[in-house]
Amino acid sequence: MKHLISLAAVLLCTTPALAVDPTGIPICDTLLKRYEECSVELPRANIHAAQKELLEGAMSLRANAANPELRPSLEKFCADTFEAMKASSEIKACMAK
């Protein structure tokens, strides 16, 4: 659960423009891809740290995706995070496309 909270902070606070490898969880992959595409609209402060955090969050998702006990929680987390970003993030218009 700690990884899920960290990923939420990463997704809501980062500004990277880089390629993220697939996690194997379709909704999480869609979220990460859309976030990557839309993140260029965020302020560029602290981009190096943001890129690192996004990659670490994606790595955490990939590492936990194969665990059948965690997978449903990860799917729900990504779906909820995606919807929250569409509704209230700085890049909500882009995320909602």
Rank of each mutant, 00 (worst) to 15 (best):
S60F: 03
L12V: 00
K52L: 06
T15N: 15
L7S: 15
Q51K: 02
Y35P: 00
K92A: 14
M1E: 12
P43M: 07
E53W: 04
P68A: 13
N46P: 00
D29T: 03
A17P: 00
V20E: 07
E53D: 05
K97R: 14
Q51P: 00
A66H: 13
E41G: 08
V40I: 12
E69I: 05
Q51Y: 01
Q51G: 04
T23F: 05
A17K: 08
N64T: 04
A87L: 14
A93Y: 09
M95L: 02
L7T: 14
V10G: 10
A66D: 11
K92P: 04
L12C: 07
S88F: 12
L70G: 02
P22K: 15
E37R: 11
E83I: 13
K52D: 01
N67H: 07
C28Q: 03
I91V: 11
E83Y: 12
T23A: 04
R71Y: 06
L55C: 03
L74R: 02
I5P: 00
A93N: 13
A79T: 06
C13E: 05
R71D: 00
E90W: 04
M1I: 11
I47E: 06
A65D: 03
L31M: 03
M59K: 08
A63E: 13
C38S: 00
P72Y: 08
N46L: 04
K2Q: 14
T81H: 03
E37V: 04
E90C: 01
L4Y: 11
A84E: 10
A84L: 14
N67G: 10
D21Y: 00
A84G: 01
T30Q: 15
R34E: 02
E69S: 03
A65Y: 08
C94T: 00
C78Y: 09
R34P: 01
A96V: 08
I25M: 10
K92M: 07
G24T: 09
A63R: 12
S60T: 00
A19Y: 15
A49D: 12
K92Y: 09
P72I: 06
C94D: 06
N46D: 01
E56D: 11
Q51T: 03
S88N: 13
L12N: 13
A79N: 04
L4N: 05
E56A: 07
A84P: 01
S88A: 10
K33G: 06
I5S: 08
L32Q: 09
I25V: 15
F77W: 15
I47S: 02
M85Q: 04
